[in-house]
Simulated assay, not measured.
Amino acid sequence: MSKVLPTPKTMKKKAQMEYVLSQYRLAHPNTDPAIEPHLVAPWAIKKGIIIPRIVTQEDVLRRDLSTHLKSEHVTDPQDRRVRKNHSIPVEVQTQDGVKRRSKWYSIFEAPAPHMHLSLALRRSMALSDCQQLDLDLRSYNDNNIHSAVVPKLDYNFNLDIEEASLPTTYPAAPPDDADES
């Protein structure tokens, strides 16, 4: 009895991407091991390995709006450049069921609970990034084919934050009350 293999249409997104990559590697065994998505995507579509989900104009615009809101900055009254908009995830009822969307407030208009949750979520993401970075570094050091060792990184950003807040321009001459020792 032959085993029925799942098709890309029936797989979840992660499994779909793994399937596409495995098929690409099988079809290109003697190429550089680096993956270049701009080469894999058109190959997979042309071969019919995967048919991308149709994205509506509304989906595209919603993503573009979120990207814009996330990247917009303002200068506050203390002359600090800050992220203007802050989001939290919210559940919204759609025709296709409950979907996760984002709710954005401008920094100075955000209610405190919204701002606190937004900042806490971003802090949690930064911690996750540092944890993954440390795992990747240790795994590289233990397993890379070059026997290379990358030094352990310092994940305490307090000194970096202090340094970034120092002035970047200085007066041409010292102040009049400077000690002349």
Rank of each mutant, 00 (worst) to 15 (best):
H28S: 03
C130S: 11
T31M: 11
R122C: 02
D154G: 05
L135R: 14
E72A: 09
H114Y: 07
P29Q: 10
S147M: 10
E36S: 07
L133Y: 12
D179L: 14
K47I: 02
R101K: 09
H73P: 00
Q93T: 11
K13W: 14
M115H: 09
E109S: 13
T67S: 09
E91G: 01
D177G: 02
P175T: 07
S118K: 03
D79C: 06
Q16T: 10
M17F: 12
P174S: 05
K12V: 07
H38I: 02
I88H: 02
S102Y: 13
G48D: 06
A164T: 05
V98G: 01
L26R: 13
Q95T: 08
E180Y: 14
C130D: 10
S181Y: 13
E91W: 08
D32K: 08
A178E: 05
M1F: 06
S165Y: 11
S87C: 13
L166F: 15
I51R: 14
R81P: 00
H116Q: 14
Y24F: 15
I161E: 08
N85K: 06
Q16D: 06
S147P: 00
I51H: 09
K103T: 01
I107D: 04
P33F: 04
A41K: 09
K13I: 15
P113E: 12
H28V: 04
D179S: 10
A15Q: 15
A164L: 13
S118V: 03
W104T: 01
K47W: 02
P6F: 12
K9E: 07
N85R: 12
L159G: 03
R123A: 13
K14N: 11
Y155P: 00
K46S: 06
P113N: 12
Q57L: 08
K3A: 02
C130M: 14
K14S: 12
L166T: 05
L121P: 00
M125H: 12
I50D: 02
L117Q: 13
V150I: 15
H38Y: 07
V74R: 13
R62C: 01
I51C: 04
P52C: 10
L133N: 08
T94C: 05
R83H: 04
P89R: 15
D142C: 05
A112K: 15
L135C: 04
L69D: 00
A172H: 08
H73G: 00
K70D: 02
K9L: 06
V74I: 14
S118L: 04
D64Y: 07
S139L: 13
N156D: 15
A164C: 06
L21H: 04
R63S: 06
K103N: 03
Q93Y: 06
D179I: 11
S2P: 02
A110D: 03
M11R: 11
Q23A: 14
D79V: 05
V149Y: 14
L26H: 08
R138H: 10
F157A: 11
S71W: 04
L39N: 04
T67F: 09
M115F: 15
S22M: 10
R100P: 00
A173E: 08
K14R: 15
N85D: 03
V60N: 03
K99N: 03
S139D: 09
D129F: 11
L153N: 01
R83G: 01
L121D: 02
R100E: 10
Q23H: 10
E109W: 08
R62D: 04
V40I: 12
T75A: 02
N143Q: 06
E58P: 00
I145N: 06
V90E: 06
Y105F: 15
Q95I: 08
D96Y: 14
Q23G: 01
Y105I: 03
D79G: 04
